Simulated scan of single mutants.
Amino acid sequence: MLNYCLMVTGPAYGNQRSRSALQFSQTLLKCNHRLSMIFFYQDGVLNANSFSTLASDEVNLVHAWQHLAKQNQITLYVCTTAALRRGIIDSTHASLLKKTGENLQPGFELSGLVNLVQMILTCDRFVQF
């Protein structure tokens, strides 16, 4: 059994990277590998935007990420800097920026690159999508 860490740089919709990362994660878990953290970076942070909408016939990748994380105790980290640049904020940053409301999806957690480095140092395999 190997401990995997993933970094997702693709948005939920617009290209295949996020969906491929999700399918890879599901397969890892079915094969009894460990997946403790997933780090969303660059446009990957858009997976955590609660203002995203999708067509009724599309797979809801955001909910699939949330379900995967909850069922398997996986932390979904979102790069704070990349998120703020793309207009994604949590309640803490909303008050600091004097904005009303937040749009970070439940189950996702804003984080710095320190968590990414720790993640890389503690895993057996690091895969980027």
Results as ranks from 00 to 15, higher is better:
Val8Ala: 02
Val78Phe: 02
Tyr41Lys: 03
Gly101Phe: 08
Gln23Asp: 15
Phe39Asp: 06
Ser36His: 11
Ala48Gly: 07
Phe108Lys: 00
Ser36Leu: 03
Ile74Asn: 11
Gly112Tyr: 04
Thr122Cys: 12
Asn32Ile: 06
Ile120Leu: 08
Asn15Asp: 14
Gln128Val: 13
Leu2Asn: 13
Val45Asn: 03
Leu35Thr: 15
Gln128Ile: 12
Lys99Glu: 00
Phe24Lys: 01
Ile74Arg: 03
Glu109Pro: 00
Ala12Thr: 07
Leu84His: 02
Thr100Ala: 08
Asn103Ile: 12
Pro11Gly: 09
Pro11Gln: 06
Asp43Ile: 06
Leu68Val: 04
Val117His: 12
Val62Gly: 02
His93Gln: 04
Thr9His: 13
Glu109Lys: 12
Ser95Pro: 03
Asp57Cys: 02
Ser18Asp: 10
Phe40Thr: 06
Leu84Pro: 00
Thr80Gln: 04
Tyr77Glu: 07
Val78Asp: 02
Gly101Pro: 09
Gly112Val: 05
Gly107Phe: 00
Gln66Val: 07
Gly10Ala: 04
Gln23Gly: 14
Gln26Ile: 11
Glu102Tyr: 00
Ser56Lys: 12
His33Pro: 04
Thr27Ala: 12
Leu110Thr: 01
Gly101Trp: 09
Ala82Asp: 15
Gly112Leu: 01
Val127Phe: 03
Leu28Gln: 08
Gln16Asp: 15
Arg34Glu: 12
Gln26Ala: 04
Gln23Trp: 13
Arg125Val: 04
Thr27Arg: 14
Met119Ala: 08
Leu97Thr: 00
Thr100Gln: 14
Ile89Lys: 01
Thr92Ala: 00
Arg86Leu: 11
Ser95Asp: 05
Lys98Trp: 02
Met119Ser: 11
Glu109Asn: 09
Gln26Lys: 13
Leu116Lys: 09
Ser52Arg: 05
His33Gly: 10
Val8His: 05
